[in-house]
Amino acid sequence: MLNGVGLLVILACVFGSFIWSGGKMDIILHALPHEMMAIAGAAIGAFLVSNSMPTVKLAGKGLLRAFKGDRWKNTDYRDLLTLLFTLLSTFRKGGPTAIEPHLDAPHDSAIFSRFPRVLADHHLVEFICDYLRMMTVSFEDPHQIAEAMDNDIEKHHHEELAPQHALQQMADGLPAIGIVAAVLGVIKTMGSIDQPTEILGAMIGGALVGTFLGVLLAYCLVGPLAAKLLETVDADCKPFLIVKSAIVAHAQGLPTQVAVEIGRRMTPSAKAPTFQQLETALEEAKNDPIPA
């Protein structure tokens, strides 16, 4: 919604100011189809040349992600913390035999199934299950766990950012591609140098539309979308840091509720449940027995 409003503001202000100052839209509209063909075609072609097919596919999904924003809502963070509390409590009370069935088949787990929105993030679920499963085989050194989790988070973040880097590269190249289109227009104009001044003026104006479009697309569309995707990816990686903090605190021997509270403090401030809200959710989890 906010993205759409922003685009409307850009178009209204840019073209509105042009018309208000006496500019003639017919020159832009006449040049727009062929200039856009040159710029968009060259940009897409360069994008395909410089990226692998998986990155190209992820970039398409990335654009949708940029418009939708981050997936994690306020209640999702509360659910994640409650899930961690339930898993860690089960592990501490029942040991590996109690927790392993939930880790081996999380989609069939009575614990995970209570939190469907968390369960829908398969990368995060795998991350939780893998490290809890490793702890069941005596991998319990907090420093080693923290280092291994940091490496995994960095790897995941790098992979998630691949389409964002590709879009940013496209944005960086668009002004230069706009100049290429403008130069072609100038070449065309120079081939008609014997025409009247009115015609030459319109042709030069049409050529400059290429430069205008390249800069506009770079800094008012593709660049902002790449920046929004970066923000979205960063936000969607926050749950991994929460999981890491809680599991490492658990490995250090801290009480489960304290470990989860440490995880809560890693939650983005605008979406973090309060201490009382989390305590209420944990009390409900304690009083809701897990089916055998």
Rank of each mutant, 00 (worst) to 15 (best):
A166R: 10
A202H: 12
A235V: 01
R114K: 08
V222C: 10
L230Q: 14
N3Q: 07
H122L: 04
L88W: 05
A181D: 11
D141A: 11
S52N: 12
A207I: 15
Q257V: 14
P268Q: 07
L103E: 10
A162G: 04
S50L: 07
V56P: 10
A31I: 05
G45T: 12
A12H: 03
A110H: 09
P116D: 07
P101S: 08
G62R: 00
M25E: 11
Q252V: 06
I179R: 02
H102E: 07
G185M: 09
P96H: 00
Q144P: 02
I262N: 14
V215G: 07
M1S: 13
T267W: 00
A31V: 05
T55C: 01
P239N: 03
H102P: 01
C220Y: 14
A42T: 15
T267I: 02
E231P: 00
I19D: 05
A38R: 06
M135Q: 13
M53I: 14
A270I: 13
L167Q: 00
G94W: 10
T90G: 03
C13F: 08
V180T: 07
V243E: 00
G205W: 14
R71V: 03
R71P: 02
L84P: 10
L200M: 13
L84M: 14
G16H: 06
A59N: 03
A148F: 09
L103I: 10
G4T: 06
P106L: 12
T97P: 04
E283W: 02
F275K: 14
A148P: 01
G210K: 12
A42G: 03
H107R: 15
E159H: 07
L200N: 00
K68C: 05
G23T: 06
G210A: 06
I19H: 04
D236G: 04
N74R: 15
V118I: 15
D108M: 06
L216H: 00
D234H: 02
L88S: 08
T256N: 15
L80I: 01
D121R: 00
K57G: 01
T82N: 06
T82V: 13
G263N: 05
E198A: 15
L83M: 09
T232F: 02
R65V: 00
S17P: 01
E159W: 01
T280H: 11
G185V: 14
L184A: 12
F47A: 04
L225A: 09
P255I: 02
H34D: 12
R265D: 08
G173L: 07
G223S: 10
L63K: 02
C13L: 11
L119Y: 02
A40G: 09
F115L: 01
F15C: 13
A207L: 09
A285C: 08
F67L: 12
M53E: 04
A249Y: 01
T256E: 15
P106F: 07
A270R: 05
S138D: 13
P273Q: 07
T189G: 12
M25S: 13
V56A: 11
C129F: 00
D236E: 11
I145S: 03
I153F: 05
P96T: 01
I204C: 11
P101N: 12
Y219H: 14
G191A: 09
V186A: 09
T86E: 14
S21K: 11
P239F: 00
G253A: 08
I290W: 06
Q252E: 15
A292C: 08
A148Q: 06
G95A: 09
K155W: 02
G210N: 08
T97R: 13
